[in-house]
């Protein structure tokens, strides 16, 4: 595992984990898994396992952090000590603080912050098992948790990454590809408004490759969005069935 294989993609274009270049990892989404949170969601994205919980809107504590003209969205991204092979210290690392901010900023455009001034919404993302692309899976799950908590939203936010591995642009990188590959481009996207809320790049790509990667990630987002919508509806479908 730690030694670099000669090729990450074989002659037939099949990746190390058996996927084609534009294929997503298997996904499982579930809404309303935690009863003490106002809204919650669980995502299994390949080997990633992530829980997200949302609370609010509620009064901000500490109070001085509240804003007089809008609601405040707070996010905490945290990796469990057992989420990676080598034990991770439970204290928030530099990377986790950064990802918390990135997740917060990618979700903010989807909320009507101006509707509920002086209040706060808290989102907690707990990574139980990590295998590359956790920021994207976290955003997908966090958006579901917020929708489940009843906070009005402009659109769901869905995220997916694309990148470059062995001179090929591929969709949805997993841990080994992320570490050994040439570049990684995570994209968060609001599918109905056709708006990108997060765009990062790590590595080197030519402008043509970059464009291809962004488009590929957006197509991946659209596929995940359908599953996201389905997961949200499944929780409330019971209500609908009673009606029919």
């Amino acid at each position: 595992m730690n030694e670099k294989p000669e090729k990450l993609i074989d002659k037939k274009g099949i990746r190390l984990d058996g996927r084609k270049a534009d294929e997503l990892r298997p996904l499982k989404l579930q809404v309303g898994v935690l009863s003490n949170a106002d809204g919650s969601a669980y995502i299994e994205h390949g080997k990633n396992k992530i829980l997200a919980a949302a609370f609010g809107p509620r009064e901000m504590h500490p109070k001085h952090l509240s804003l007089p003209d809008r609601m405040v969205l707070r996010c905490r991204y945290h990796m469990a000590p057992f989420s990676v092979q080598e034990r991770k210290s439970p204290a928030p690392s530099r990377r986790e603080v950064e990802l918390s901010k990135v997740i917060k900023e990618s979700l903010e455009p989807a909320l009507f912050l101006e509707l509920y001034p002086r209040t706060g919404v808290d989102v907690f993302v707990e990574v139980l098992q990590a295998d590359g692309g956790t920021r994207c899976a976290s955003i997908t799950a966090a958006a579901l948790a917020i929708a489940d908590s009843g906070v009005p939203m402009r659109d769901l936010v869905v995220a997916c990454a694309a990148g470059k591995v062995d001179d090929t642009i591929v969709l949805d990188l997993y841990d080994a590809e992320d570490k050994l590959g040439a570049a990684d481009v995570p994209v968060a996207f609001m599918p109905n408004l056709n708006a990108i809320t997060l765009l990062q790049m790590d590595g080197i790509l030519t402008p043509e490759e970059f464009e291809k990667a962004v488009n590929m990630a957006m197509d991946g987002c659209k596929k995940i969005y359908e599953m996201q919508k389905e997961a949200l509806k499944t929780k409330y479908m019971v209500v609908k069935e009673v009606e029919e």
Partner: peptide, 10 residues
């Protein structure tokens, strides 16, 4: 009529 919709649906 009475269709279940999610946030952002047109």
């Amino acid at each position: 009529k009475k269709q279940l919709v999610t946030p952002g649906e047109l």
